[in-house]
Design a protein around this nucleic acid. Sequence first.
DNA 1: ATAAGTGCAAATCGTTTGCACACTT
DNA 2: AAGTGTGCAAACGATTTGCACTTAT
Lengths: 149, 149
Amino acid sequence: MDEKEVIETLRASGYKLTKARRAVIRVLVQSRRKLTAQEILEKGKEEDPKLGIVTVYRTLEILGEIGVAKRLHGESGCHSYALSEPGEHRHYLICKGCGAVIEFEGYEEIGALLSRLEKETGFQITDHWLQVFGYCPRCRERVNEGGGK
Amino acid sequence: MDEKEVIETLRASGYKLTKARRAVIRVLVQSRRKLTAQEILEKGKEEDPKLGIVTVYRTLEILGEIGVAKRLHGESGCHSYALSEPGEHRHYLICKGCGAVIEFEGYEEIGALLSRLEKETGFQITDHWLQVFGYCPRCRERVNEGGGK
DNA sequence: ATAAGTGCAAATCGTTTGCACACTT
DNA sequence: AAGTGTGCAAACGATTTGCACTTAT
């Protein structure tokens, strides 16, 4: 999803495009990392200095509703948000170094696992969530070089 | 893990067994569901009427630290806690009806998926998290019968 | 023009911290 | 007895809500 597509989706869903919303969208599109609402606010202010945290939250809610952004869950209990392809994927690969987020498809492996689980537990599985953490190629280098740690 | 094992682990880790802690542990052991801190407080009060929310949080932190309870992440942003086998599993099967939590092993399917991901993305994967949602056998029946919904 | 969107301040909710008192070992 | 653990009240941080003002269509 690029900026244009996000904006189109937004309009198609009956929402107006405002300066504030464009700022939030642009931050998400340009960073492609997971960002907290606060981080989005700060970067967004570079584009729309009047941007407020409330609008950031409200915009994220709308973007979530129309499926183009998702809320990610951090260990600590605080959330981050990231752009995503529309739809119901719930699989993210997240760089612990720079926060880069890559969304990936539910490969057959997951399907196999789920049907196995259903068989073994008697559960009727409806949904799942997978977050994978690691280091992206760039951060991986940095970490491995870093000598000390 | 039953109550006795949890208590032993607690003591072995240098913590004292108190009325409050026993109450929290008992709630977790007896329900085997995911529970919010508030829910644990309420049920725990049946056993120790003086129990306070602060102690619930502190006990959950300790249980997490010694590996016998885990924090689960809910869609809304609020957390639940559940008993778990000690160690680093991060795979839970959660009933959307009654909240029952089943922990399962990281089957080969996940290993296969992860190594595939590593190859395709160049990430160095260090960790992952999987939560699977559905209906347990009992709730499944209830839902399917329920005619209306 | 007008409904939708905004920022501010205040409210809320889950969680944590400071502190004097109580309990386990 | 002595240190650990407790509850309370207050602090805290993220998120939401009420409201009068502004803006996109």
